[in-house]
């Protein structure tokens, strides 16, 4: 109980003082997660939409595989990226290991299947409604993809938020490929892991509270924008 109390006090102090170190870490966390979300969205959402409209042999297998990849342990994803980006690995010449870029890749790899699988589910329902009309307009599956992505934009926002939540909460992969380097690749989650292992549980918990508040804020903001837009656009 005492620990929880002091964690709250420490969290308030961190925010009140605008602790520069924490703000930098927070900024990096947000930049990395948003960049990963951007990449994952560009790949995952069209993939999900295509899976929702296309009918081809093996489609079910792809959907099952995507659903399974949603549960990919972050450490495994991190390890794969690590081996790829290592100087001994095939992409070693990029020089990305232990940089924020590597963390972006790792998070993007983790959340792309999530975005694809969830958007496929959301857009399948929309496609069921639209399929005849779009075919009547002469739109094939390729043309239907951008239409579904646009018309499903409000539902897809929720999908994006799920991806963002997973990315910003992730620690196993980013600590492996980022190295938790102070001032360079230390994010909120790796800082929490570090403070925990230093035994400073109140500080670790305080950082966790700050992260939760930020993620909550991002969600609230997005939902608010969505509600406004929904009222306008239906």
């Amino acid at each position: 109980m005492q620990d929880l109390g002091s964690a709250f006090m420490a969290a308030i102090a961190l925010v009140r003082d605008g602790d520069a170190g924490m703000l930098a870490i927070l900024g990096l966390s947000l930049r990395v997660s948003l960049a990963a979300l951007g990449i994952a969205a560009v790949v995952g959402l069209p993939l999900g939409a295509l899976l929702a409209v296309a009918r081809f042999p093996g489609r079910r297998a792809v959907v099952v595989a995507l659903n399974a990849l949603m549960g990919l342990p972050p450490v495994v994803a991190g390890l794969l990226i690590y081996l790829l980006l290592s100087r001994s690995g095939p992409l070693g010449h990029w020089g990305l290991l232990f940089t924020p870029g590597a963390m972006v890749i790792a998070q993007a790899v983790l959340i792309t299947p999530i975005l694809a699988a969830l958007s496929c589910g959301v857009l399948e329902a929309l496609w069921e409604e639209y399929a005849e009309a779009l075919r009547s307009f002469g739109a094939g599956p390729w043309r239907a993809v951008p239409t579904l992505l646009w018309d499903g934009r409000f539902a897809l926002l929720t999908v994006l938020l799920a991806g963002f939540g997973r990315a910003s909460a992730e620690v196993g992969a980013v600590i492996l490929v980022g190295g938790n380097i102070e001032g360079f690749t230390r994010t909120m989650t790796t800082a929490i892991a570090l403070e925990t292992s230093k035994g400073d549980l109140p500080l670790a918990l305080a950082l966790g509270l700050v992260l939760m508040v930020i993620v909550l804020g991002v969600n609230a903001l997005a939902q608010g924008l969505r509600d406004v837009a929904l009222r306008r656009a239906g």
């Binding site: 409604e129 639209y130 005849e132 009309a133 009547s136 239409t147 646009w150 018309d151 499903g152 409000f154 656009a233 239906g234």
Partner: peptide, 11 residues
Amino acid sequence: MVFQRPVLLRR
């Protein structure tokens, strides 16, 4: 073609 229940885009 026009369907019994109109399919309108969310636009």
